[in-house]
Design a protein around this nucleic acid. Structure first.
Length: 461
RNA sequence: GGUGGAGUGGCCGAGAGGCGAGGCUCAGGACUGCAAAUCCUGCCACACGGGUUCAAAUCCCGUCUCCACCUCCA
């Protein structure tokens, strides 16, 4: 079975052919840690986590690099604003991202390099670029890439250099061409800086990704990912830097679309950003992940609490079936991938089509529960669980465990006592008393359901 | 000005020439002491105007609306 992926570079879906058989190297642009993550940031993490899990499932040995850009203008501004050192700002928000990734069961990358830990590699890259004439240091501490000297530029965004709206910063007197971009920024008083042959300074925005991708994945690698808004300028400039250095760089470019609110891209400046930390007050991490992963990664997602609640209902049905299956089977369901789900994932990660398959399996599984067909329950539950594992939403995954096993068993004892009372009332046809017990327990957040194999209870939260 | 994307039923959300996407909600039915859960049935939409075709949500032409990027961005 072949995996087909959309490549922004070619603008078509094509078969994924790794550089090295059986291996997949992925570089994902992670966070610039200048603020707490909103659900748009974490959607990117979830989308590419699904890609990684699928490739891994298909037998690829995946090396997944997701960087942290821990030095940039906004971090420095924030440091002044919050009156703490810039590195404390970076650490604070890096930890906020890590917390959010863990909360949503986004797997840790194979390695998570920080920009400030790779100054040496950046200086080496700049040296190459200056030596071969692609870049220049005008003498003020800055280093620029000369975009007019490139054999090709803007291939990813399909733009023409002269069609770009000109930058309105007329004071850029050190640039040979207004489109040239800074690889390195000379130190200003009070700024953090690192020594270079061209004077002390700090990295420009794009240099770190070229340097770190090269350091961990080599001159050429399989997939480079990130949000749609990184295509220009960030990814164009990464390509410019890396290819000018003679590196082949990424073969496939993948970009996830945004989460929008009222039709507009989520951003701090618009004041419409929804922090992960806020949403997980309302729904569980697994439920937020289910929601964020449910739309195709290349489609814009219009966020609303109504839509979120709606998919949560859907998820709880699925989860409920798996728990039910566990009770009936006496063990957690196994893990399997149905052909239809595999076909969906191989088609450029068509999660919505995969969800339709899960719905079909759920229907079959529930019918099997009614018929007490254990073999059917086992097979459908395994296929549903397998699909959920790819989506990172396996309710049995320890990542989502709330660690309530001891209290849960105590509660089970208490609820059993009440249920015994209710069963006694039902036996003597005292339904008023039986219903009263059920209603009182429901008010405590515990739902009682009568099934052919006796009453069962679940927390409704 | 340049580049790219979107408009689908009450709502979310796929599809990209013919075959029911799916989910949520709602209505009816089965099951149940009543519920809950579950299953079955129904609700048959593709911004607008033309065109191509045996057949168009899907292709072509035109129009409208919205969003994004153009050196801060997931």
């Amino acid at each position: 079975m072949t995996i087909n992926l959309y490549n922004t570079l070619t603008r078509e879906v094509s078969e994924f052919v790794p550089l090295l058989p059986g291996k997949a190297s992925i570089y994902l642009c992670g966070a610039t840690v200048q603020g707490a993550p909103h659900i748009g940031h974490i959607r990117s993490g979830v989308n590419f986590d699904i890609l990684r899990r699928w490739l891994t499932h298909e037998g690829f040995d995946v090396t997944f690099i997701r960087n942290v850009t821990d030095i940039d203008d906004k971090i420095l501004h924030k440091a002044v604003h919050e009156n703490i050192p810039w590195w404390a700002v970076a650490m604070k928000y890096e930890q906020a991202f890590t917390w959010a990734y863990q909360r949503l069961n986004v797997l840790s990358p194979t390695y998570e390099p920080r920009a400030t830990g790779h100054i040496t590699q950046m200086v080496e890259l700049m040296q190459i670029l200056i030596d071969n004439g692609s870049a220049y240091a005008p003498g003020n501490g800055d280093v620029y890439l000369s975009v007019r000297s490139l054999k090709s530029y803007l291939t990813l965004s399909n733009q023409k250099l002269d069609d770009l709206q000109s930058a309105d910063d007329s004071e850029e007197t050190f640039k040979k061409d207004p489109r040239d971009f800074a690889l390195w920024k000379g130190a200003k008083p009070g700024d953090p800086s690192w020594p270079t042959p061209w004077g002390p300074g700090r990295p420009g925005w794009h240099l770190e990704c070229s340097a770190m991708a090269h350091a961990y994945l080599g001159a050429e690698f399989d997939i480079h990912g990130g949000g749609l808004d990184l295509i220009f300028p960030h990814h164009e400039n990464e390509i410019a830097q890396s290819q000018s250095a003679g590196w082949g760089f990424a073969k496939v470019w993948m970009h996830n679309a945004w989460v929008t609110a009222s039709g507009e891209k989520m951003s701090k400046s618009l004041g419409n950003s929804l922090l992960v930390s806020e949403i997980v007050q309302k729904v569980r991490g697994i439920e937020l992940r289910w929601y964020l992963g449910s739309a195709h990664y290349r489609s814009m997602m219009e966020f609303s609490f109504e839509a979120l609640e709606e998919t949560v209902v859907n998820f709880r049905r699925i989860e409920g079936f798996l728990f039910r299956a566990e009770e009936l089977l006496g063990a957690q369901p196994g893990s399997d991938i149905s052909p239809a789900f595999a076909a969906a994932m191989n088609d450029d990660l068509a999660v919505p089509a995969g969800l339709a398959e899960i719905s079909e399996l759920l229907r079959q599984g529930n019918t099997a529960v009614t018929a007490n067909d254990l073999a059917m329950i086992a097979s459908t539950a395994a296929q549903i669980r397998g699909a959920l594992q790819i989506l990172g939403c396996d309710p049995f995954d320890p990542a989502f465990a709330v660690d309530e096993s001891s209290s849960h068993s105590a509660m089970d004892g208490l609820v059993s006592l009440a249920l015994a009372q209710r069963e006694a009332a039902r036996a003597r046809k005292d339904f008023a008393a039986a219903d009263a017990i059920r209603d009182q327990i429901l008010e405590l957040g515990i739902l009682i359901e009568d099934t052919p194999s006796g009453p069962r209870w679940t927390l409704v939260r």
